[in-house]
Write a protein that binds this DNA or RNA. Structure first.
Length: 210
DNA sequence: GTCATGATGGTCT
DNA sequence: GACCATCATGACG
C-alpha cells in the first residue's frame, strides 16, 4: 500500500515532483535540536536510463540499494567526504531520485550555523552543506521512509516560488548521454541556491510570492 | 566578488 | 587505482 504522503512522490514524472518540492519545508528532529528550512534547489535523477544516475543501466550495489526502495524513502549517500540527501521517487524497483541542493534556513537557524561553523548563505547553499547544517553526519537514516523518520519533508508547510528556473545539473559528467539535460530546478533569486551570483539575488523577498 | 585549485573518503573495477 | 550527484581556500580584480 502507498500512503497519501508517499503518493506525492510517485505517479507523475520525476521532474514534476522535483519542481513541486521547491518551497516545501525540510525538517530534522536531531539529537542536538530541531532544524529545518525551505527547499530552494533540486535535481532530478531519472534512474536506469539516466547516464548521470547512480542506477544507470540498472547498476545496483549495496551502496545505492536504497534508490530501489519505496517512494518517499531516504537515500543518504557520501561523496568526497560529504553527505547528500536524496529523496527516492517512483515505485519500488524504479530507482529514480531527487537531490536536494539548497535550503533556506527556517528552524533552529543558530543551531545550523553552529553545525557549519559559518553564517549567511554558506550555511546551506549546497547539497553537502545543507545536510551538515541540519546536523547529519552519518548514513544512519539511509533507506528509512520519511513518514516515520526524524528527517522528512513537511508537505503542508511551504512557500510559493515566484519563478522557477531550469538548468543542467551540477557536478555531473557533461559528456555523458544525459549530462547536459535540463534537470536542475531552483527558486529564481533565492540567495541559498548554490552558486547564486550576488547581483542575481532577490534580497527583497528571496524569490517567494508574498 | 569571482575564479581555479587541491583535499577529501568511500566505493567499485 | 580511478572515479565521483562537493567544499573551502587563496589568488586575483
Amino acid at each position: 500500500m502507498v500512503s497519501a504522503y508517499q503518493h506525492f512522490f510517485t505517479d507523475r514524472p520525476t521532474v514534476e515532483i522535483a519542481r513541486d518540492l521547491l518551497g516545501k519545508l525540510v525538517c530534522y528532529n536531531g539529537p542536538d535540536g530541531r532544524t529545518g528550512g525551505y527547499i530552494v534547489e533540486t535535481e532530478a535523477y531519472l534512474g536506469e536510463n539516466d547516464s548521470a544516475s547512480h542506477a544507470f543501466n540498472g547498476r545496483r550495489t549495496g551502496y545505492s540499494a536504497s534508490l530501489y526502495g519505496q517512494p518517499g524513502d531516504i537515500y543518504l549517500y557520501q561523496i568526497r567526504g560529504h553527505y547528500c540527501f536524496d529523496i527516492v521517487v517512483q515505485d519500488r524497483e524504479d530507482p529514480q531520485g531527487i537531490l536536494l541542493r539548497g535550503i533556506e534556513p527556517a528552524i533552529g537557524i543558530k543551531q545550523m550555523q553552529e553545525h557549519r561553523g559559518m553564517t549567511g548563505v554558506n550555511v546551506s547553499n549546497g547539497p553537502g552543506k545543507l545536510v551538515q547544517a541540519l546536523g547529519i553526519h552519518s548514513r544512519d537514516l539511509d533507506g528509512q521512509p520519511m513518514a516515520t523518520s526524524p528527517l522528512y519533508v513537511d508537505l503542508n508547510q511551504f512557500k510559493i516560488p515566484r519563478e522557477i528556473k531550469v538548468t543542467a545539473r551540477i557536478g555531473v559528467n557533461l559528456h555523458g548521454k544525459d549530462g547536459a539535460k535540463p534537470r536542475r530546478f531552483f527558486v529564481a533569486g533565492n540567495p541559498y541556491v548554490s552558486g547564486m551570483r550576488k547581483r542575481a539575488m532577490d534580497l527583497e523577498d528571496y524569490g517567494w510570492k508574498d
